[in-house]
Design a protein around this nucleic acid. Structure first.
Lengths: 157, 157
DNA sequence: CAATTAAATTAGATTTAATCTAAATAGTGT
DNA sequence: ACACTATTTAGATTAAATCTAATTTAATTG
């Protein structure tokens, strides 16, 4: 009775394999899943049409590109009703890569990526100047120990 | 004097374009960057060899796959020297998608993705039972308002 | 500053994959 | 069992990836 029922193990297997390497040819996926490559196409088209697979992106080592510091920000708003307008302001700041509405003390929980400590300071300044933001707490990332996709295994029938 | 100097604007442009859609054919990238597709190949090979481009992954809407709840966890350890061993335990828990060593009060900051509140409870239980973990704080994600790659523009020469 | 060498880029040929179509197969409900 | 629908498949066509050799560009040195 759930839209999830439109998705079977073949779909999940295809997603899992492509999620490890999105550039794997469909012909190769087809062999591993024991269907024809046409079926892989049809299934992927379905998954894209359903909005389950939204896009494919590169996994980039930003530190090697000179973006050496990332940080999580706990943002406190003056009034929680300001959430939407503050999010719009944050969208305009290129260094903000994600922002969430979460339970807990913070009004907004965000992540930013910066080149160095100086750049970080500039970005924090910019964020603290946004109207409606009261104050922020910064968790600077010193090490990324895990970063991987979910793995869903074959759920037995 | 920096490894970053091996990377020019052509590389950055290629990365930017492919980061929006990793499945864009190199021939199309080539046109937009005004080089031949062979050059795009060579550059991407270089970027992969340098470890800057690590892989390509799908951007999946997990909620549509039945994974409806994600949460950030602030984890307190009994002793901070236990970091490495606890990370190894967390790696064994499939629902843990990322974990960081950060400044601030938490010893480990992690993210998990679960199907529903019941599944979340199971996973939190499992995590709280890991040897060395003192207690955890949970920030449940109620809305993802921003989630995007960094955009680096052409840094003028 | 010309000549030599090295590096990067390119066009073109070949291999491989994506995509499309029509036929075959498997499911569904009556 | 029959008709209807949806899914899968093989095969053909189109398009892209990959490789190679040649050219162009840039860098280096006498």
């Amino acid at each position: 009775m759930d839209k999830i029922l439109d998705i079977d193990n073949i779909d999940l297997k295809i997603i899992s394999l492509l999620n490890e390497d999105a550039k794997t040819p469909y012909t190769e996926i087809a062999k591993k899943v024991f269907v024809s490559s046409g079926t892989v196409h049809v299934r992927m088209k379905k998954l894209e049409d359903m909005g389950i697979v939204k896009s494919a992106t590169l996994n980039i080592d930003f530190s090697k590109l000179g973006y050496d510091i990332s940080a999580f920000l706990g943002i406190y708003l003056e009034k929680s009703s300001l959430y939407d307008t503050v999010i719009e302001r944050l969208k305009e700041i290129a260094e903000v890569v994600s922002a969430y509405y979460t339970t807990g003390n913070y009004s907004i929980f965000a992540k930013i990526i910066c080149r160095d400590t100086n750049h970080l300071r500039l970005v924090l300044d910019k964020i603290q100047k946004v109207d409606g933001i009261d104050r922020t707490e910064t968790l600077i990332v010193l090490e990324e120990s895990i970063n991987r996709p979910i793995q869903f295994f074959d759920k037995e029938k």
